[in-house]
Design a protein around this nucleic acid. Structure first.
Lengths: 233, 233
DNA sequence: TCAAAGCATTTTGTGTACATTTTGAAAAAC
DNA sequence: GTTTTTCAAAATGTACACAAAATGCTTTGA
């Protein structure tokens, strides 16, 4: 066996790649919540038989993006406002757990570098008076990097799996109206600094509390936004 | 056809019922962790074609009981000790969340009755000097009832889904050596009383803390047991 | 006009054949 | 004797055909 330079054989199947693109399409909103996913339609669009389509549907149902009813088929999962609020509560609990574990176990050199780079990039972005759409998506990236470092440091694969599911709830919904005002973003970025500090000082309890409140605050601002303009549905 | 008495059409498919029995079989330990699940073997055993078997495998993979590797097949998921410990931590976080929500939202009449029946049944059981195997399984039932009431009162379907997954980790593992000594059971049962009290008085914070510690204590006793006799694999 | 029944269409569920990949062991090379 | 290569058997991936169920529309009846 030579295969030294290729840790991954890169062998994938149609089912897997179809599942990937369908996931992206659903998260991008190309299918409406509650919409029925009809196998044959996708067969024609993707030029494959029903078999890999079904496999992809089943995989996505396992991730919670589709729901299956026997003899009726697969539907894009609908999330109620209540579902989204609860997803944030779950995230708060799980991310808090991951932060505590990250503090207890410590970060590797690479993880520290990645987190600090994300913090620095955020510092620069946050100084701006107002945000363009690009700034917002850039902040989303920075935010994701920071949280990912903590998940990898403190999260088991199980925590990461569950976080992935609960993170998919909000984006896949049309209720997704997160506050991106400079004031909110600055506050959340400041949270990141404090959380990182708590992790560096190995203060697991503080890291957990800060992270929980950090995620809960997004939930609260979501609720506030919806109360002020409930007709945005 | 009148079908007045059947609110559910009861229409299921082979895939679904195969998934159910496979789930039970895996949880009962009829398949070894890490074992490869070969489609054709089950086809012969169950007298169906590969198609519904594959569907069942994919469903169970979504639940986390099997893992899939493209072009290689499905394997019974192996849980390391670390996984089990983390599953308890996740459960602690999620059950704590459910308890807090149950306290905040309150219980229905039926939920109160079910919880109080479970508490009373536990009171009677706990008085015994020593436990038979039957007592233990009975306590397991009582325990499940109590927790289920709280999940239903405070948990969204998402919390319940995630709890179901994290609850499957320990039973499906051969590391499952939970302490069932009378002393441990009495303490855990006393926890239930306090948790219920906190929920009745609508003290969400206290309910959460108590529930978290309640679940964490099982984790700790697991760790303690394994340290005292680490050769049990 | 409206409701119910019947029927054709559509869609999902299952079986099966074939293609592709993996696997494991025998054979060959060193 | 050990390692590598080769190759057949086995297992998974995919396509397709048919069966069973659901859906929607037309027709029928009051």
């Amino acid at each position: 066996m030579k295969k030294i330079a290729t840790p991954e054989p890169e062998t994938t199947t149609r089912s897997v790649s179809i599942a990937e693109s369908l996931r992206c399409a659903i998260l991008a909103g190309e299918f409406a919540p509650g919409e029925r996913m009809i196998e044959i339609h996708l067969c024609e669009r993707l030029n494959v038989s029903r078999t890999p389509i079904r496999a992809a549907f089943q995989a996505l149902a396992g991730e919670g993006l589709l729901v299956h009813t026997p003899n009726k088929g697969y539907y894009v999962r609908e999330f109620s406002l209540e579902d989204i609020v609860q997803a944030y509560e779950i995230r708060a609990a799980l991310e808090g757990l991951a932060a505590r574990r990250a503090a207890q176990m410590g970060l590797t050199r690479e993880q520290m570098e990645a987190a600090e780079a994300a913090l620095l990039a955020g510092d620069l972005l946050v100084e701006k008076e107002s945000f363009t759409q690009e700034d917002r998506s850039r902040y989303g990236q920075i935010n994701k990097t920071f949280h990912d470092v903590i998940h990898n440091a403190g999260g088991s694969s199980m925590i990461k799996d569950m976080l992935r599911i609960s993170e998919q709830v909000a984006p896949s919904s049309h209720h997704n109206v997160i506050a991106f005002e400079p004031r909110d973003v600055r506050r959340r970025h400041d949270d990141h600094h404090r959380i990182y500090e708590a992790i560096l000082t190995r203060d697991g309890g503080r890291a957990e509390i800060l992270m929980r409140d950090h995620v809960e605050s997004v939930k609260l601002s979501l609720i506030r936004t919806l109360h002020s303009k409930p007709s945005s549905n």
